[in-house]
Design a protein around this nucleic acid. Structure first.
Lengths: 202, 202
DNA sequence: TTGAATTGTGAACAGTGCTTAATTATAATA
DNA sequence: TATTATAATTAAGCACTGTTCACAATTCAA
């Protein structure tokens, strides 16, 4: 049994996050339990509550990690030297591939439903917002006369759309749910959307 | 305690579905438990398992009801005498209003994640497909030269997009999540999509 | 009226999130 | 070095969860 000298507070925090992530990747949210996580790292339940407020809090931190990973991919070096249109299509491509690479971990972001009392932490909301901001920045050059609020609207609707296709694909609610088909759908949506978006008259 | 003469098998089935629906509407999936449902109708747990395979099966049947209700709205009388474009916008309008009228009951459709062993029942898959079919039928006249498979692709991507906007709106993951704003986003997506869809050259 | 068939129960099992009194190991002090 | 104080960790316990199944209650048929 682990004693306190074995690991620092921060080490335990990381160990819990890693173990929890592994469980989620293999068995989804359903497989995630406080006892399973802590026994996997050689501790007992109580320890988890010294580090995280509760299981929901742990999930929030897993999701923050996931969002950060996705953010890094969406802003990586391979995104340089692309036309703005190509840039947008690449973003969709990255998103779908990310989701299909680890469906459980990706879906966890959207499986967490906060009750009214226990609101979404502000710092976490920013993590979500960051993704939309990338899309906004990509859309801006495609319609230079657009107001900021219309850019926000465009990014919101397009990216929520990309999410929707991805989610219905992964949860088998589309007529055809393979990754390649979902990639096609995202490209198709983006393409049609862009035509309307670029050609608009103010 | 209820005795067998009190209610027929089918009556109990309906009572369970009604009670479960009420719980879901008020407290979401988290509030739904076999004991709560059955005690609400004056029975005990065991009875539920005489009527439904398990809790997942019950949820599937709640969702089937929800999808049927939505289907009726999307094919109702008020849908007649509309231009094809108006028809499509009206579908989006109905969908968003339906989701916001009972967020928990609507979200339940997408909260159910089937494991690989326990696949989605075929009859239930048809219920999902029906919704996409309505969209397909509405899109067809807007691009008469389209192949069936492209119509399917268009309906899938657009409607999954509408779903995505709705879900992120209801779960507070958009910069602005009010119903009116979500309605705007759906209209915006549909509008831009349609421009690309109608103007396409084959 | 008796026996068979059906209907419903509720205890039991193994699990869940979370709390907390008690215990143990370390660090600081005398 | 021995003792005390502090912090880390445990393990038991609470009120739940889904699911099963031997049993009891009720109805129907003979």
């Amino acid at each position: 049994m682990a004693r306190r000298s074995d690991h620092s507070h921060d080490e335990i925090r990381d160990m819990i996050l890693n173990a929890a992530e592994t469980i989620v990747m293999e068995h989804g949210l359903k497989g995630l339990s406080t006892r399973k996580v802590t026994s996997d790292i050689g501790y007992t339940v109580g320890t988890l509550y010294l580090v995280f407020k509760n299981l929901d809090d742990l999930v929030t931190h897993i999701n923050a990690r996931t969002l950060n990973r996705l953010y890094l991919l969406m802003t990586g070096d391979e995104m340089k030297d692309l036309s703005q249109k190509e840039h947008l299509f690449r973003l969709g491509h990255i998103y779908v591939n990310f989701a299909y690479a680890d469906p459980h971990r990706w879906a966890l972001i959207y499986e967490q439903h906060y009750s009214k009392d226990d609101a979404i932490p502000g710092w976490y909301k920013k993590n979500i917002q960051n993704m939309f901001t990338i899309v906004e920045e990509t859309l801006k050059p495609l319609a230079p006369t657009c107001t900021d609020s219309e850019i926000t609207q465009a990014a919101s609707s397009l990216w929520a759309g990309v999410y929707g296709i991805c989610m219905l694909g992964i949860t088998q609610k589309l007529s055809c749910s393979g990754k390649e088909h979902v990639l096609d759908l995202v490209e198709y949506l983006t393409n049609n959307f862009l035509k309307g978006f670029s050609d608009r008259k103010i």
